[in-house]
Amino acid sequence: MASFDKKPYFAALKVHLKNSWMFVVFFVGFFLFWEYSIQWFDIPRYILTPPSLIVEKGAADLERLLYYTYVTGFETLLGFVIAIVFALPLGLAIAFSSVLKRTLYPFLVCIEMVPKIAFAPLFISWLGFGLLPKVIIVFLVCFFPIVLNAILAFNSLSEELTLFSRSTGGGAWRTFLKIRLPAALPQCFVGFKYAAINATVGAAIAEFIGSDEGLGFYIQIVTGNMRPDLAFAGIFFLTLIGLCLFGIVTIAERLMIPWHISVRRG
């Protein structure tokens, strides 16, 4: 695996900067525009606040924000991990069982059409304000992309490799470990990434509906108090949770499938 990262660190950083300076300029420009457009266009403070004020007011309320980030982050991570734990084996089972493929698979595809978020009020009413309903909503949001991508992943081994493994007489288990599983990983990661991006949506909405802590709860309360500055601070930390989760998945992807084209190009 040594040949993947031969570039010295600084050279790599230089290339990185060279490729991304335009993005950095755009990004900084965007926030500058936001900052000054509020003065230029006379936007009232209770509608939109400049980034500088968001930072200032957010910092003043940092303790609460950090605690709620922990609360929401924990719900998100737990739901995401449980989704992986259940979805991967189920995806495997469906991929390799013709009975499940004709029964459970079409059922899952139908359920996938249902917006999972719509269940949130029901779960809150059944299970109350605690951790459990939030984890269940995150789980539901994450579960389907992981299952469906896993099924796709384990079913799309190339014809040539299928013939190759049969010609060796290696048996189902060896074929799975040495060929099917590694070949399926890239498509599985597509599902993990999609789930990671959407996980915080599930957590935030569950908290909007019924909760007495967490970032979703916070955003709702401060918006009610005409404090868009604090709402943006809450959104910032919610984004941070999403970014961290996505980052973890991306790092895992780099470690597990460094040979894959998406990793090599990225």
Partner: peptide
């Protein structure tokens, strides 16, 4: 499947990993 043969398929069977 015959195991005492060596088959070179038309598309190569090298795995990328």
């Amino acid at each position: 499947p015959q195991t005492d043969v060596g088959i070179m398929f038309q598309d190569n069977t090298l795995v990328p990993w």
